[in-house]
């Protein structure tokens, strides 16, 4: 699907929800726990379940591709992983900064 910053998506098979922070031009085949992600407004199909050993996505973490052109913020935790095509997205390393305002 075509992704746009601000777009909200949910996993088809787990509790996970994300919001698009940065998106590349063109189509992205975005999956969560192995199933294509669905629009936020769409309800999950009945009986969908993520594999029991699926790695969790954590609320507040950002997930990126290697090039940094795709970035998603996890707004609700749930089973992952997130992947674009065949490539898994990684947690963006946190660079904690002291509060300045």
């Amino acid at each position: 699907m075509q992704l746009n910053p601000g777009q909200r998506l949910r996993s088809a098979s787990s509790e996970a929800e994300v919001i698009v922070i940065r998106a590349p031009k063109g189509e992205v085949h975005l999956t969560c726990a192995g199933a294509p992600m669905i629009p936020f407004e769409q309800a999950q199909a009945a009986g969908a379940a993520a594999p029991a050993d699926a790695p969790p996505l954590l609320i507040g973490k950002r997930y990126c591709d290697e090039e940094g052109t795709l970035e998603l913020l996890c707004t609700r935790g749930g089973a992952g992983p997130l992947a674009a095509g065949s490539r898994e997205l990684a947690v963006k390393a946190a660079k904690p900064l002291p509060a300045s305002d």
């Binding site: 601000g6 919001i19 698009v20 609320i59 507040g60 913020l73 707004t75």
Partner: peptide, 14 residues
């Protein structure tokens, strides 16, 4: 992303 989402995330998490 809307700045409101920041509050929604925190309210959902804690």
């Amino acid at each position: 992303m809307n700045i409101l989402t920041l509050l929604e995330i925190v309210a959902a998490a804690d």
